[in-house]
Amino acid sequence: MKLVELPSCHKPAAALVLIGRNSCGQWVAQEQNGLYGGLFVSRAEAMKYALFENGHHPETIVELSRTIELDTNGRFAPVGLLFGSSRRPIA
């Protein structure tokens, strides 16, 4: 008898990656929780990075039409920063 492992229903989902342009016109790719991200000279390079980092899941990449700023603190970026709000959180 051959044992077969059934697919797990609790397989972790690939991370959502946001891409778009920052206020200086550079391309930004950033994981939704701020775990990874970077600045890029082109949309193609931002997409390539996002695909590499999220395990080649294009369905989890969201391109924003609004400004997105890179969060370099390594923690979840406040929604206002991700979507270009002029208001900054008070520390």
Rank of each mutant, 00 (worst) to 15 (best):
Q30F: 01
E53G: 07
L39E: 10
P58V: 10
R75F: 09
E69M: 10
S23G: 03
S23W: 05
A15E: 15
L35D: 08
H56Y: 08
K48E: 09
L82K: 09
M47F: 07
L70Q: 07
R66S: 15
V62S: 12
T67M: 11
L18V: 08
Y36N: 03
E69N: 14
E63Q: 15
P58G: 02
N33A: 15
C24P: 03
Y36C: 02
I90Q: 12
S8A: 07
I68L: 14
C24E: 14
P58A: 03
M1L: 04
S8L: 02
Q32C: 11
P58R: 09
P12K: 00
E53P: 01
F40P: 00
G84F: 01
E59A: 09
Y49W: 12
S65E: 12
R75T: 12
V41Y: 08
G20C: 04
V41E: 08
A44R: 13
I19W: 00
D71C: 15
A44T: 15
V41T: 13
E5A: 12
H10W: 14
L51N: 06
Q32D: 13
V41N: 08
R87S: 12
L64D: 04
D71E: 12
V28F: 00
E31C: 03
G34F: 00
S42P: 02
K48T: 09
S8T: 10
G80N: 07
S42Y: 04
Y49I: 01
A50T: 02
S85E: 10
A15D: 14
D71A: 13
L3K: 13
N73T: 15
L18Y: 14
V62N: 07
F52C: 11
N73G: 12
E31F: 06
I68H: 08
S65N: 08
E69Y: 04
V28C: 01
D71P: 02
Q30P: 00
L81D: 15
N22D: 11
P12W: 00
E69C: 06
A46P: 03
R43F: 03
E63C: 04
I68W: 05
G74I: 02
E53K: 15
T72N: 09
L51Q: 08
A91R: 14
F52D: 13
V17F: 00
T67Y: 05
P58Y: 02
M47W: 05
A46M: 06
M47I: 15
A15N: 10
M1V: 00
M1H: 03
T60G: 03
N22Y: 00
N22H: 03
I61L: 09
V41K: 12
E63N: 10
L81C: 07
E53V: 12
F52N: 10
D71H: 07
V62E: 13
F83L: 13
I61M: 07
T72A: 11
L16Q: 05
L82I: 14
G80W: 05
T72E: 13
G80I: 08
